[in-house]
Amino acid sequence: MDTNTPLAQTDPVISDEEFSRFCEFFYRKTGILFDTQKKYFAERRITDRMHKLGCATFRNYFAAVRFEASGEEMQHLVNQMTVNETYFFREDYQLKALVDGILPDLAARRNNGKPIRIWSVPCSSGEEPYSLAIYILENWADADRHDIEILASDIDSAILAAAAAGVYGERSLQRLSPDLIRRYFTKQRDRSYRISNDIRDSIDFSRGNVVDPQFMRQFRAVDVIFCRNMLIYFDDQSRRETIEAMYDCMSPGGYICLGHSESMSRISSLFRPRKYADSIVYQKPFE
């Protein structure tokens, strides 16, 4: 169904009170909050799901979402409500938190010459790990005094191949200044842009699944994990298992950065929230 079509006369009606109750429930489960400006967006998607399930009333649909043991409908709804788009310097306030707070903290505690290890998972088509590399080189004054490893993983081999190729359209580069594009990319004949070999070759791409213990055991002593906008698509159990596995991958005092609509408090109490710049990140205790 076209989600942009206006509500039809026959569409089920969701009262303000029902919508308010739904918002509270959805926020508690996912951390995603719909303000009044997003009401139409959310209602449209709820009514789409109601049509698909044949629910005549919102009350019936909400009961299905609320009490279904498999959680399948809840997941459908989450998928409908979230938008998956990636580009360079996305959510750059977290990159600012990285260079203004996280890296200086890690560097201050590092006196053994070991590299600072950053892991981007899922890395999708590569915009995130390359953004990390560029942002660090451009904005962290101490970058040259430390070895920095950037690891990048994804479950999808096709998207990983695209990441390793490092070729992007203008839309992906929209947040970068012309100067950064000039210095870190080469324009191709088809108007796409290829990331510089230095940056591309500095990142290790690997394919794997975060819920696979064998895969996760490869990663140890990771100082910062960027895991943005992935866990929102997992069910509660997988989310919990993944966070437990990431905990074991990390150095004491290491950090996890989640997506803007994700909150660790809904997954695990293992990590301590820290505020750097305008960003909340989560730190593994020094147990």
């Binding site: 590299p115 290890r117 590399a133 660090i136 080189l137 970058a143 040259d144 005094r145 430390h146 070895d147 920095i148 490893e149 950037i150 690891l151 993983s153 230095d198 940056i199 070759d201 500095s202 990142i203 290790d204 690997s206 490869q218 990663f219």
Partner: peptide, 9 residues
């Protein structure tokens, strides 16, 4: 360069 590459393996 500050960036160094190491394989996960």
């Amino acid at each position: 360069m500050a960036l160094v590459r190491r394989a996960a393996a």
